[in-house]
Amino acid sequence: MFGKKIKSLSTAGIFLLLIALINLSCQRDDICPESTLITPLVKISFYDFDANSEGDTLAKPVANFSIRAVGDTLNFEIPTNPSEISIPLKTDVDLTSYEFILNANDDEEEEPTSAENSDIINFTYTRNQEYINSACSFKVTYINLEAKLVAETPSSNNWIKDIIVDQSTVEDETTTHISIFH
């Protein structure tokens, strides 16, 4: 009788130990918290070119603005007549090109109107990948950011008059990285 109790206790002990080991080997679901900083967007502000030539910096919204990634089908939700926007840069190459469109046609089915004016800006940078954790994976920050307007012939066709890189390192979305004067 005493042997049966020991045998049942050791079986129960082994069973509890097995359950404890299984429980310890399980991990919680990996969910990336919203508070975790991930790959930042580039913040662009639009300013009045004429006011800048007088030494002032005056925000100037872009009329009927639209933006398209060159060579990509990426679409953006842009506020109506924005004075600032935030856009992503590619994380797998060191060049991203966007077409910035002034007086864009709202209907994508229709042909562009004569009032529509588009300028292409090439963004070049160096990517710096940082491992966050298994849930959030990698975060990319950008250093040595440059923005160059693709020249048109004649140059008077460009609605963008000047581009200034305010922050060449993109680590967060709180400050303006690029100022565009039009």
Rank of each mutant, 00 (worst) to 15 (best):
N64W: 06
L58W: 05
N52P: 01
E111P: 03
V42N: 02
I44K: 03
S134Y: 07
E173Q: 09
V165F: 13
D106S: 14
S25C: 08
I87R: 14
T91Y: 07
F15M: 13
N122M: 00
L149T: 06
L74Q: 13
Y125S: 08
Q27E: 14
L74F: 06
S66P: 04
I22Y: 01
T141P: 00
A20K: 14
T153D: 11
F138E: 09
D48Q: 09
R127D: 03
D106R: 12
N64Q: 09
A20D: 00
I132V: 11
E109H: 09
I120V: 14
I132Q: 04
I121D: 00
V140F: 11
N128W: 02
G55Y: 15
L24Q: 15
T80P: 04
E110P: 00
S118W: 10
F49N: 15
V170H: 05
D172Q: 04
N75A: 13
L37T: 06
F76A: 13
F76V: 11
A20H: 12
K4R: 15
G13M: 12
L24I: 10
A115N: 09
Q129W: 09
I132C: 06
K4Q: 13
S168H: 04
N144A: 15
I160V: 08
S137K: 11
I19D: 03
F2D: 11
S156F: 06
G13R: 02
K7N: 06
S114C: 02
I132T: 06
V42L: 13
I38Y: 05
T113H: 07
F100V: 08
S8I: 15
T11S: 09
P61L: 05
S35M: 08
L58P: 00
I22D: 01
S66D: 04
F65R: 04
S10Q: 12
K5A: 10
I143M: 07
F181S: 05
T96A: 07
F138C: 00
V42C: 04
A115S: 02
K148W: 00
T36L: 01
M1W: 11
E99Q: 11
T141W: 04
N128F: 02
Y98M: 06
C26Q: 12
N81P: 03
E99G: 05
K43R: 15
S137V: 01
N157D: 13
P82Y: 04
T91I: 15
I78E: 01
N128E: 13
N157V: 11
P79Y: 04
T80I: 12
L41S: 02
L145E: 07
P154V: 05
L74V: 08
D106L: 13
I132D: 10
F100S: 01
N128Y: 04
I14E: 10
N117A: 06
N122Y: 01
I132E: 02
G3D: 13
Y98C: 08
